[in-house]
Design a protein around this nucleic acid. Structure first.
Length: 281
DNA sequence: AATTGTGACAACCGCACATTC
DNA sequence: TGAATGTGCGGTTGTCACAAT
């Protein structure tokens, strides 16, 4: 036997690529019944031709009932940026995820690379141009460099720094511009895409609390609240699942129901019953 | 209408650490 | 104590949808 550890599974015998609805249901129902004590043996026991790691990833990043779906809120984006700054340039997506209930490290990582980083970079360029303009002709050479479309500021003067790394450094330094994060919120709003800019004017008081004190207490809910929110989450999760499987009755009706969820207590079906309904559908 | 480019996100890979025996 | 195994994590890739040409 050669060096190194054995692969977690025989890649020629496992299915790869996107998960089907059937596979999702198998995984969900198995985990609900038996939990996930051993990811390696889980796929075999659940009748899935998947690698254990793949099952774990699918569950954690997509099927878990307590996951939030949809666009990140402005507050979540701010949190990511703040934490990314406070943890330094080395990526700590899991730590950030732990501060954002319902969001996964993978999701946060994607948002950072596809949205936030880009937006901050564009702000840097914008800011650099403004700065250069305000300085007028004090330093023509510098100004001409920055006005070039592909120009990027040099930190440390090393040519070996990759574009990605350079962006990170720039982004890190950008935070020094901000006196507080309300300014950062403004920047996000300024450069963000319209669909990511949903800032509710009837913003939840909790959000203001969150914005005032960055460290949101993890167990701020009373036991009763916690139980109710957990039921709500499960209920929401099933509605989402039904929606994705095309089993919902009517979109607008469902949206209305989801809207009402926050306002009224309604008994949620047991998880297992709902699985059976879905599977037998 | 067809082709190409780009963005977004799900999924995979491999390494490192923790745990078990 | 060290090897084997399980799990978590970050980086990277693959795929799909949509826009631009």
């Amino acid at each position: 036997m050669g060096k190194g550890r054995a692969p977690c599974c025989d890649k020629t015998k496992v299915k790869r690529g996107p998960w089907s609805q059937d596979e999702d249901l198998k995984l969900i129902s198995f985990i609900h019944k038996y939990g996930h004590e051993n990811w390696r043996s889980l796929p075999k026991q659940a009748g899935l031709l998947r690698c254990g790691k793949s099952c774990r990833l699918r569950w954690i990043n997509y099927l878990r009932p307590d996951l939030k779906r949809g666009n990140f809120t402005l507050e979540e984006e701010e949190t990511i940026i703040k934490l990314h700054q406070s943890f330094g340039n080395k990526s700590v997506w899991s730590k950030i995820a732990s501060k954002l209930p319902g969001r996964t490290d993978n999701e946060i990582k994607n948002v950072w690379h596809t949205h936030l980083k880009k937006r901050l970079s564009s702000y840097i360029n914008h800011n650099a141009n403004d700065e250069a303009a305000s300085k007028g002709s004090l330093n023509k050479e510098e100004t001409s460099q920055e006005s070039s479309p592909n120009a990027s500021r040099s930190f440390g003067g090393s040519n070996t720094v990759s574009k990605e790394e350079e962006d990170d450094v720039q982004i890190g330094e950008t935070f020094e511009y901000f006196q507080d994060y309300s300014e950062l919120a403004g920047l996000l709003q300024e450069v963000d895409k319209p669909e990511l800019l949903e800032i509710p004017f009837d913003i939840d008081p909790d959000v203001w609390n969150f914005l005032e004190g960055f460290q949101q207490p993890e167990n701020s809910l009373t036991p009763k609240d916690h139980q109710e929110s957990e039921e709500d989450e499960v209920d929401k999760w099933f509605k989402n699942l039904e929606s994705e499987l095309g089993l919902e009755e009517d979109d607008s009706q469902q949206q209305q129901e989801q809207h009402n969820e926050a306002k009224e207590d309604s008994p949620s079906p047991s998880l297992l019953e709902s699985y059976e309904v879905l599977i037998n559908h």
